[in-house]
Every structure is written in C-alpha cells, then in structure tokens.
Design a protein around this nucleic acid. Sequence first.
DNA 1: GTCTATAAAAAGATAGAC
DNA 2: GTCTATCTTTTTATAGAC
Lengths: 197, 197
Amino acid sequence: MDSRELLVETMSDLLWERGYADTSPRDIRERSGVGQGSMYHHFPSKRDLALAALERNVAALLPAVSDLDGRGDPLARIEAYLTRPRDALKGCKVGRMTQDPQVREDPVLLAPVARAFAQAHVSWVRVLREAIAAGKLRDDLAPERLAHTLMAVLQGGYVLAIAQQDSAPFEDACAGAVDLLRAAATSTSNLKNDRRK
Amino acid sequence: MDSRELLVETMSDLLWERGYADTSPRDIRERSGVGQGSMYHHFPSKRDLALAALERNVAALLPAVSDLDGRGDPLARIEAYLTRPRDALKGCKVGRMTQDPQVREDPVLLAPVARAFAQAHVSWVRVLREAIAAGKLRDDLAPERLAHTLMAVLQGGYVLAIAQQDSAPFEDACAGAVDLLRAAATSTSNLKNDRRK
DNA sequence: GTCTATAAAAAGATAGAC
DNA sequence: GTCTATCTTTTTATAGAC
C-alpha cells in the first residue's frame, strides 16, 4: 500500500480511538511506519490529513446506514438496524468528532460530519414514512422528529456505554427504542380513522 | 473568591467547553488570572485539578436530574424533563467527558461520570415505574431499558445538534421521544388485563 | 499562598540532501 | 517521494525567592 493511503487509514483509526486533539504527528508516524518527511510531503498539516481521514470514516459509515433503505417490512428494517451488533465501547467514528473543539469550531472539518448525519436522517425519515404508510406505526407520529430521536438513541447509547465501560446501556437503549416503537405500532390513531369511515 | 475555588470553577468551564486534552495549563492560568505558582501549589497536576472540576460539574448536574423525583403526575414530570430548555450546542458537561481518551482510560477520572449516569438511571427508573403503576404507560415496557433509552435521547441529541450547529435536532429528538411515550401510554397491554378480569 | 524563573518533553512543523 | 536534521511553540511541570 502506498504511503498516502496508509497515512489516511492510520489517521482514520486514530481519530476514532483518540479524537483529533489527542492524536499527535508522532502517533501517526509511529503507528503507520511512514516517515516524517513523507507525511509532510503528502499532507501540509495535521488538519489536512485529518480532513482526508474524516471523509474516509464518513464513507465507511454510509453503507451501513443505507441498510435502512432496503426493501421488505420497514419496521423490521428499523428494528434490525437498531439491534445490529455494534462495538458500543468504541463509539461512533463520526459522532465522536462533534466533541473535539478543533473539529467543532472548524467548518471545513465539521462539514463531513454534518453531511453524514443529514444523509442518515434522510434514510431514517424515508423508512419511517414507509412504516406509517404500511400501517405499522401510528400515523400521528412525525417521521422527521422520530428520525432524530432514533439517531440520538444510538449516539447517546455510545455515551452511556463508555461512561459505564459496559455495552449493556447501549443495548438497553436500543432495545427500549424498539419496545417503544412496537408499543406505538398498535395504532390508536389508525383505529380512530377506521371508525370514522 | 479564593484561588483554589477560582481554579476549579475555571477548569469546570474549560472541561465543558473544550474537554480535557484540549485544555492547557496556560488556558487555565489565563482565564482564571491565577498565577503559575498558585496553580501548582493547589493542584500537583492538571489531572488533579480536572478531577476536582469534574466532581463539580457532576454536582452541578444532579439537582436538575432530581426534578424527575418530584411528586405529581409522573408522565408529566418525564415530559417536563425531556422538554426543559437546554443549550443544546454546548452539550452535556458530564457526557462530554466520555469522548476524552485521557478521561475514558483513567478509572479515577471516569468514576464521577459513571456515578452521575448511574444516579440519573435510578431516578429515571423510579419515575418510569411510577408512570406504569399509575396506568400512564404500558405495563409491558421495561423501566430499566426505557430509562437508558431516554437518557440516550438526551445525550445523542447533543451530538446531532453540534454536528448541525443547530439546536433543532436536539429538540426534535426530545419531542419525538415524548410522542413515542404518549403513543405508548394508550395501553393495549393494560386493556388486555382489564379484559381478563 | 503567591511570584518569577527555569526546564524537560512533546507538538507541529520546516529544510534540504538524496 | 523519502530521509534525517533542525526548529519554534506549547505543554506540563519544578525550583526557589518572597
């Protein structure tokens, strides 16, 4: 593999594991085995390398999110996505970046993060709409809101799991969300509509 | 105010705003106005100061959480807590710390964070149990799980808001959680129980 | 308890030969 | 494109006078 690619890959891992502020040029050099000179040849600064690495992490995450776009029972897709096995203690490659002030305050570095979440939101809204249309979810639930709620459950689940150094809170949070969705599947509102007809 | 207290207060703010790794002794000195000598007189290291500051941030957060323990309609308390105005772009003083590797990997620094979330969980479970007992929530929902779900909605809501630099996703996430709880209030399960009697 | 001076180490790059 | 050497600044303290 060429040096440039190796640097990006290494930085992607370090951003996930340690974030931006706590990753030094030396960490990158030592883990990648790429020399000082090469590093600054390919990337003028740590920030430029971080940008490339961040784009890579975003790209790595989107295929997973696109599972929400599949076909078949939408509620089943939602439940499958929420309960998919994840390494909760490692956190989210993308969500993590929001806690790094040097990323958060830098519009260029924050942009890929914002884009990733915006795209995930689109997929969530679509599958939720499908679930409502299929009569699997109450029709008085707002898909745009609910999409943010379910995205937050995942992102927040990581926080809880890391705090306790135990993946159980993450799994609980997701399972609890599934419970709520199922409870909201039995549609009082739809029944009302039926009665009106 | 004495130097020691001023240092802790300043560090508390900096931990909230910038986290541990990205806060330097100089930042602390400049913002607090306390001299170098005084700082190392009161705290042998940055880590020791951070520990005191972290305990302070945890202590500042717990009174808010204890609002869940009040009296009156439990579901109303839950909704009030979820929709209370918050500065979403600033994130959570305590949850934020889970993303700092130097905190996450240090059992002593992580302990106050774990304790705070454990305590919040207790309050959440209690109010959820009350809501179920009062017939305001389906009795087939597991309070322990749901507690983690709702805590995650808040923590994850901050992540979404910071990513978009907009508090709307946070408010959406919370409002969506309230919607789901209300949908789950109309208890199919309780109705079944009624029928059995 | 506070102040100023000093300093070892790491972060974040630059220079220039090959 | 890679390598080694150099360099500035910041981090994280320590020392010792007042």
